[in-house]
C-alpha cells in the first residue's frame, strides 16, 4: 500500500544539482501539498554529501543520499539498482524526476523493474472532482493531454523543463540528510562508458548573437536557404536551425538550437517554418522578442511569439528582406 509521500530524484553533474532538478523539487512540493503528504529528495552519485546539504535547505521532509562509487558515472543498471529497492521499501505515491535525456534513459526501466506506473513529461497538474489530472504535451506539442493515474502503487513521473520555476521552490528549516538504504550488490553498471564527445561545439557560439534567424523543417531543403541568408545578412543576424533541418543535413549541427543543441536568448529570434516543439522551445524561449512565420496558424510557436505572420515563408522571407533594407536605408 503506497502512502502519500512524493520523492524527487535529482540529477547532478560536476558537483552541481541541475537547474531542472530544482524545478522538479518545486513541482514535488506542490504535488505533496495536493496529496496531503511530504516531499523528500533523493540524490545519487559518488561524493555528493556537500550537494545534499545544499538540497536540505529546501522545504523537504528528508534528503536521501545514495553514495556509491558505481554511481559516479551514470549507467541505467546502477541507477535502477540503487533506486528499485528503496522505492519498493518506501512505496512513495509519486517519484518525480527532471525530464532530461538521462532520466528518460533509465526511469522507464525503473518502472518496469518496480512494477510502478509511468507518467513521462508532465507539464502541470490540476485538482478536480476525480482526483488529480496531469498535463503532458502530445503530437509534438501541438496538443495537451490531461491524464489520470489509475490503479494502486507508486507512479514515476518526469517534470518538463520550465513547467515550474525554481523561484516557486519553498525553503525550509534544514531537512534531515539520510543514507538511502542500498543493496550494493544491485548497484552494477550495465554498460561500459568509453567517453564523451562534443558534437554541437564547433567554432560557432550562437549565445552571443543579438539577432538569430532560425529555420525549421518548413524551409524545405538546403537549396532553399538563399533567401534566408539574404534576410540574415540584411538583419546582421546569424542563422540557426531546429533539429529536423540538421538531421536532414541542410545545415551543420553546430547551428542547432534546442535540448540537444545550443540555448540562446537573443533580443530578436525569427522562427521561420518552425512549429514550436518543446525540444526546440527549451533552447530559445528566453529570447526577448520572438517572431514566428509559419503556414499553420495552429503551430504552437505562435503562442510563444510576440509577432506572427501566417503564410508561406518562401514568399514572406524575400518581402521581409526588402522591408528591412528599406527601413535601414
Amino acid at each position: 500500500m503506497s502512502n502519500n509521500k512524493v520523492w524527487i530524484v535529482l540529477q547532478q553533474r560536476d558537483g552541481k544539482v541541475s537547474r531542472i532538478s530544482w524545478e522538479a523539487i518545486a513541482a514535488g512540493q506542490k504535488l505533496a501539498a495536493a496529496l496531503g503528504g511530504e516531499a523528500e529528495a533523493v540524490l545519487l552519485g559518488s561524493g555528493v554529501s556537500e550537494m545534499a546539504r545544499e538540497v536540505a535547505a529546501a522545504d523537504l521532509a528528508a534528503v536521501h543520499v545514495a553514495d556509491h562509487e558505481n554511481l559516479a558515472d551514470y549507467t541505467p543498471g546502477a541507477y535502477v539498482g540503487a533506486l528499485a529497492g528503496a522505492i519498493g521499501a518506501a512505496e512513495p505515491a509519486f517519484v518525480l524526476f527532471p525530464h532530461t535525456y538521462q532520466t528518460v534513459d533509465y526511469f522507464a526501466r525503473l518502472a518496469q523493474e518496480t512494477g510502478a506506473g509511468l507518467l513521462p513529461e508532465m507539464t502541470g497538474f490540476e485538482e478536480g472532482a476525480d482526483g488529480i489530472l496531469f498535463h503532458r504535451p502530445i503530437l509534438e506539442g501541438k496538443m495537451v493531454a490531461k491524464v489520470r493515474v489509475k490503479g494502486e502503487g507508486t507512479v514515476l513521473a518526469s517534470v518538463q523543463s520550465g513547467s515550474w520555476s525554481r523561484d516557486d521552490m519553498a525553503q525550509g528549516g534544514g531537512a534531515e540528510v539520510r543514507a538511502l538504504d542500498l543493496d550494493a550488490s544491485r548497484v552494477v553498471p550495465d554498460r561500459e562508458i568509453l567517453g564523451v564527445e562534443d558534437v554541437a561545439g564547433g567554432e560557432l557560439d550562437l549565445t552571443k548573437e543579438d539577432i538569430i534567424v532560425a529555420v525549421g523543417r518548413g524551409v524545405g531543403g538546403a537549396d532553399k536557404m538563399g533567401p534566408v541568408e539574404e534576410l540574415a545578412a540584411a538583419l546582421g543576424a546569424e542563422i540557426a536551425a531546429s533539429r529536423p533541418v540538421v538531421d536532414n543535413g541542410w545545415l551543420a549541427r553546430e547551428r542547432q538550437i534546442g535540448s540537444s543543441g545550443q540555448t540562446v536568448a537573443p533580443k530578436l529570434y525569427l522562427a521561420l517554418g518552425i512549429s514550436g516543439a518543446i525540444q526546440h522551445v527549451v533552447g530559445m524561449k528566453g529570447s526577448s522578442n520572438v517572431v514566428a512565420i509559419n503556414k499553420d496558424p495552429g503551430a504552437p510557436i505562435f503562442q510563444l511569439a510576440r509577432y506572427g505572420i501566417v503564410g508561406d515563408l518562401h514568399e514572406i522571407v524575400p518581402a521581409l528582406t526588402e522591408a528591412v533594407k528599406a527601413a535601414k536605408a
Binding site: 506506473g117 506539442g141 505562435f302
Partner: peptide, 23 residues
C-alpha cells in the same frame, strides 16, 4: 496505469500579434 481523460489545443496565452496582408 494512465488514462487519457481529454486532449485539446494548448490554452492560448496572449499569443502573437498576427500581422495581416499580402507578404
Amino acid at each position: 496505469r494512465l488514462e487519457v481523460v481529454s486532449v485539446g489545443f494548448p490554452e492560448s496565452g496572449e499569443g502573437a500579434q498576427i500581422l495581416e496582408g499580402d507578404p
